[in-house]
Simulated scan of single mutants.
Amino acid sequence: MPENTGSRGPSRNTRSTPSPRSGSGGSSSGKGVPTGRAAKSAGSAKTTKTATSAGAGTTAGRGRGRSASHPGASRRVADPATFRRRRLLVLVLALLLVAGIGLGVWAIVRALDAGTATDPEADTTPVATESVTPTDPAGDGTGDESPTEPEPTEPEIGATPPIPTACTPEEATLAVVTPSSPRAGATVGASIEVATTGTTPCLVDLGSGATTVEVLSGEDLVWTSAHCAFAPSERRLLLGEGATDSQLVTWPGSRSVEGCAAGQATAEPGTYRVVVTHRLDGQTLVGESTFSLS
């Protein structure tokens, strides 16, 4: 019994002190077993470190994910559809501007044209109609003038003109103009005038070959151009619608004989008639005038 008590003494009173780490050859008691508080502290430190590392990794992952999913965070780039819509809008606006300008110019031009068309002061120049004024021959024969030639009548281009014929009494008139009271023994002028009244052009010849002038006192033939022909002998003209022509013939105030011999008796004062006869191509025009010698 005493031997058992002595052997337990050392076991109770002696505490085993952990030795420092001596390498891989030491026993488990040589490494040291941590106490309960120390183990808790160590486990808490490991948990905190792991959580910190995990948080950092999660933050980094989120940052990388955000950067990858939102490349326009630092610089926004429009997509092609937006560019196309903008270009289409600009094109439509440009077309509307051009159309507006064109419409404005058109309206101005139309307004100017309308003002010109309705201008009451438009230039309306009347067409002058040329006519031949009858010559009033003087009793002394100084009024002899050359007749005015009428304008020729031309047919329309491409049309076949009709063959001209002599003027008939229905197509023309013949008149004689003389002074009212010439002196006896003085030269008396007689103006032969022809005017067309129809629409068809016709021929006249106021020369002495086709026109005869006679001076009569009652039924007495005092003087005639058949004895003393006047100039010209032929004067044929084609007269159109509304045309006129004239020829001046002078009477010396004396009688005449065949051959127009000079020195014939002077006509006495009194009333005389001038009869003009125009004959051409079977058509006859006659005109007459009366005057008195004083």
Rank of each mutant, 00 (worst) to 15 (best):
S225F: 11
L206E: 02
A231H: 11
A231D: 15
S233Y: 06
L206W: 10
L206M: 04
T244C: 00
E241F: 11
D220W: 03
V222K: 08
S217N: 15
S217W: 03
S217R: 15
E234F: 05
A243S: 12
L216C: 06
L239Q: 07
L238R: 14
L239R: 05
D205K: 11
E219D: 15
V222G: 00
T224L: 09
G209H: 04
G242P: 03
V215Y: 08
D220A: 13
L239M: 09
T244M: 09
T211L: 09
A231W: 14
V215E: 03
G218M: 11
W223R: 08
T211K: 07
V222C: 01
R235L: 13
G240S: 05
G209D: 04
E241S: 14
L238K: 14
G240Y: 07
P232I: 14
E214K: 13
G218D: 06
L203M: 10
T224P: 02
V222W: 06
D205A: 02
A210I: 02
E241Q: 15
E214D: 12
D220S: 13
A231G: 10
S217C: 04
D205P: 04
T224A: 05
L216I: 13
G207T: 12
R236L: 09
L237V: 12
T212H: 03
T244H: 02
L221E: 06
W223N: 01
G207K: 13
L238V: 13
G209M: 08
L216E: 15
V204F: 08
A229G: 07
T224Y: 03
A229V: 06
T211W: 06
C228Q: 13
L239F: 11
W223P: 00
S225T: 15
F230Y: 15
T211P: 00
